[in-house]
Design a protein around this nucleic acid. Structure first.
Length: 416
RNA sequence: GCGGUCGUGGUGAAGUGGUUAACACACUGGAUUGUGGCUCCAGCACGCGUGGGUUCGAUCCCCACCGAUCGCCCCA
């Protein structure tokens, strides 16, 4: 127990950190080009923030939150996602005062109490983006393109982009009754879950796996047929923008969000080779959220991508760069006097900008040479009694195996 | 939260109800008392996820727990 990280958590070890940095560097440079600025919000917030911002009735809020009472008797929750916090920070710090459109991105740990499996951790990492303050569908398109470009830029090819519109509260209310009318006489044929969804969340019946094969399912009304003029226009324009940008997408009427403040655009990016956890990115518009949280009505769009899943996909495709760090100079010291000199030499080399290593264990020359080889040292600088008395170092080119004596005080110039 | 599979050294991985738990790689040392990458030799699990139980005896059988993994649910 003592030597095991909690279930669903993982150490990111030195040999993997390079992969993360690689992805994060890509994210930061892409966001800079798209004009999104990084924001870092607290890892935990008041529980109510997520209850309001994500919504009661969602799995995330109802059964996946890490919630506890702190010593001041406040209910605190480890963030399960970052949109609610970003919006909170936007309102609290009045970011709307600086610009009509606020474009933010974040990278960080999120926490959900769920059953772990490949691509699903209790502590996991998301990169996400929020564009707050603009209702133009071009922003929806910009965000989708940002997600796609990130993934494609990393080399991922077999991506599938699904989009849908969930309308606004007005068209959704209309759609809801249409759906209920459609299913009312089929209730007896539906599964138990669906019967209970009928009143609460009739839209969810459409995604039911058990009832998916029922012949009448494909005749069910589609939300996109019920959109009001404004929502419909928005959806058309989004598609136009995507097409113009040369992105392929599929319409997926089953892509829904349950809560009222999710509006219009919903999208998801899948990478099917990942299996069960193939959703790599997802997002959409939430024109109702800011008002729900006490701000002035403000339109906004965002998305998030799961970095573990992106990394899994990259690994699967062999798209991770090798980040083997090699050492410039390995100083081999023989004997105590040489060790002291070697220590000084290593420090001087490092000051001069080289990466340099020594052995501290007083091991045999052979062992030190082996180590130099293992570290991929370009040069070995050998210091024994002979070299010491001559004030030189035996500089050996590890690749070519030729070596020559070089005065210690000329070594750095020689290597440059 | 539900169902399936699995859990042996640093890693991969054989194995059996009963003496010394294969093998490979890695690692350490040596052959080469001042020279790596090849070769050869040697060393390296008081222990087979944890805790119970069955048994004369269990790593191998049973139960529970923990963990990993796959699928469902949900999502990133």
């Amino acid at each position: 127990m003592l030597t095991n990280a909690p279930r669903g958590t993982k150490d990111i070890l030195p040999d993997t950190v390079g992969d993360w940095l690689y992805v994060e560097d890509n994210i930061r440079s892409l966001c800079r080009r798209f004009g999104y600025q990084e924001i870092r919000t607290p890892m935990f917030e008041h529980t109510e923030l997520f209850q309001r911002g994500i919504g009661e009735g969602t799995d995330v809020v109802d059964k996946e939150m890490y919630t506890f009472t702190d010593r001041g008797d406040r209910s605190i929750t480890l963030r399960p996602e970052n949109t609610a916090s970003a919006v909170r920070a936007y309102l609290q710090n009045k970011l709307y005062a600086d610009n009509a459109l606020t474009k933010l991105f974040y990278i960080g740990s999120m926490f959900r109490y769920d059953r772990p499996q490949a691509g699903r951790m209790r502590e996991f990492h998301q990169f996400g983006v929020e564009a707050i303050g603009e209702s133009n569908p071009a922003v929806d398109a910009e965000i989708i393109l940002l997600a796609m470009k990130l993934l494609q830029g990393l080399g991922l090819n077999d991506l599938e982009l699904y989009i849908n519109s969930v309308g606004c509260p007005t068209c959704r209310a209309k759609y809801r009754t249409m759906l209920q009318d459609f299913f009312r006489d089929k209730l007896d044929d539906l599964c138990e879950d669906c019967r209970s969804r009928f009143d609460r969340a009739p839209m969810r019946i459409l995604d039911c796996k058990r009832d998916a094969e029922k012949p009448y399912m494909k005749d069910a009304p589609k939300i996109t047929d019920c959109l009001c003029d404004e929502c419909s226009d928005h959806f058309q324009k989004l598609q136009k923008h995507l097409t113009k940008a040369g992105v392929k997408f599929e319409l997926d009427p089953r892509l829904v969000r349950g809560l009222d403040y999710y509006t219009k655009t919903a999208f998801e990016v899948k990478y099917p080779p990942l299996g069960a956890q193939s959703a790599v990115a997802g997002g959409g518009r939430y024109d109702g959220l800011i008002e729900e949280m006490g701000g002035n009505p403000t339109p906004a769009v965002g998305f998030a991508t799961g970095l573990e899943r992106v990394l899994l996909a990259l690994e699967k495709q062999g798209l991770l760069p090798d980040n083997n760090r090699s050492v410039d100079v390995y100083v081999v010291a023989l004997g105590e006097a040489a060790q002291e000199e070697a220590f000084k030499l290593v420090m001087d080399l490092r000051d001069a900008g080289f990466s340099a290593a020594v052995d501290y264990a007083g091991r045999s020359m052979k062992a030190q040479m082996k180590q130099a080889n293992k570290l991929g040292a370009k040069f070995a600088a050998i210091m024994g009694d002979d070299e010491l008395s001559e004030g030189v170092v035996m500089l050996r080119d590890m690749a070519g195996s030729e070596q020559e004596k070089v005065p210690v005080n000329e070594l750095i110039n020689k290597l440059k």
